[in-house]
């Protein structure tokens, strides 16, 4: 099988997964106990119907709920294809534009966190592999294993109380100062970075272990290869051996992991944004649940699912492109 046809196969697998998610998204509200037209009275177990039969029939026809399931399903898919994922009742705006306003915040902290954790993790992992089984390696290894066991939101809360509340180094919440007047754009950017610092730091620490372990393992595998002995025998400088000969070959799994970890970082961002009251999609999702804006909840879920799936597909394709051994 050649490369492009295997990519095509992979893509069709992802398309299937995506279709399953869409179908789930379609059926979840329909499987939910209760009915939009039945009002549950406050005393438990009693159901009161506040609409007459005729009214219910009329509303069902109005919302298209009287049609057979398959017709509803196809019109749902057709709507999605046109980019119409519904209207948020609470925000009084289309779901797409509500998400659009928040997405930039989430995407920036997610990308920043991945970049930082990947960079620092790879450097530390390479150093650890170079000095493997020495004191430096052992201490660093245990330390990083220990922090990567702690859940993200707990690290976030600790930073919030110690660095923001107690020491006052960082703002307590939000993505930007409210009602601030900036004299120039540098001031504004500094303020945004100041607000983003703790969320990014938290997310980076949580992902650090993954990149550290991966680069350490991959580096150890490369360092024991014969061509490394040759490089050393040639009398090359350590720095040159690590970065030019070893890291280049050890980098492949790290590159793919960057894309694969995006889904996990997105999930982590939902929690971390809520810790720091950061105005991204994760916080929006919680707000939507709190105000029972079901259309918006579903829209955000779809958005996150599509993003994560696309990133996984990209990881697959890039891996195939970069590694000549994989067919």
């Amino acid at each position: 099988m050649n490369k492009s046809s295997s990519i095509l196969k992979k893509a069709s697998e992802y398309l299937l997964t995506f279709l399953v998610i869409l179908t789930l998204n379609f059926f979840i509200p329909r499987l939910m106990p209760g009915d939009p037209f039945i009002f549950l009275s406050s005393s438990e177990g009693q159901v009161t119907i506040t609409y007459s039969e005729e009214q219910i029939a009329k509303y069902k026809a109005y919302y298209g709920l009287d049609k057979p399931m398959i017709v509803q399903y196809t019109s749902y898919l057709a709507n999605l294809l046109q980019g119409n994922i519904g209207y948020s009742i609470y925000y009084n705006n289309s779901v797409l534009s509500v998400i659009g306003k928040r997405v930039i915040w989430t995407v920036s902290i997610v990308l920043a966190a991945i970049f930082i954790s990947c960079l620092i993790g790879t450097v530390l992992g390479s150093l650890s592999a170079w000095y493997r089984n020495g004191t430096f390696d052992k201490v660093l290894y245990s330390f990083i294993i220990a922090i990567s066991e702690i859940p993200a939101f707990l690290i976030g809360i600790m930073f919030l109380f110690i660095l923001a509340a107690k020491l006052g180094w960082f703002p307590l919440s939000g993505g930007i100062k409210t009602f601030a007047n900036y004299s120039n754009s540098v001031e504004k950017i500094t303020d945004i970075l100041h607000h983003a610092f703790l969320p990014v730091l938290t997310l980076s620490i949580v992902r650090l272990g993954e990149f550290y372990l991966l680069s350490r393992n991959s580096m150890i595998a490369v360092l024991t290869k014969d061509y490394m002995r040759t490089a050393r025998a040639k009398g090359l400088h350590n720095k040159r051996i690590i970065f030019r000969h070893a890291l280049k070959n050890a980098l492949l799994p790290i590159v793919t992991r960057v894309f694969l970890s995006l889904g996990a970082v997105f999930s982590g961002a939902i929690l971390v944004e809520n810790v720091f009251n950061y105005p991204g999609v994760g916080r929006l999702m919680r707000e939507a649940v709190m105000v029972r804006d079901y259309v918006l909840i579903q829209g955000i879920f779809l958005f996150v699912a599509v993003t994560v799936l696309t990133m996984n597909l990209l990881a697959d394709i890039i891996y195939r492109r970069l590694d000549p051994r994989v067919n």
């Binding site: 979840i28 106990p33 919680r286 909840i297 996150v304």
Partner: peptide, 15 residues
């Protein structure tokens, strides 16, 4: 592949 936390939030919200 399914993102678990968003899915859990959706299911929790509905059921």
């Amino acid at each position: 592949v399914l993102p678990d936390l968003p899915m859990m939030i959706v299911l929790g919200a509905f059921f």
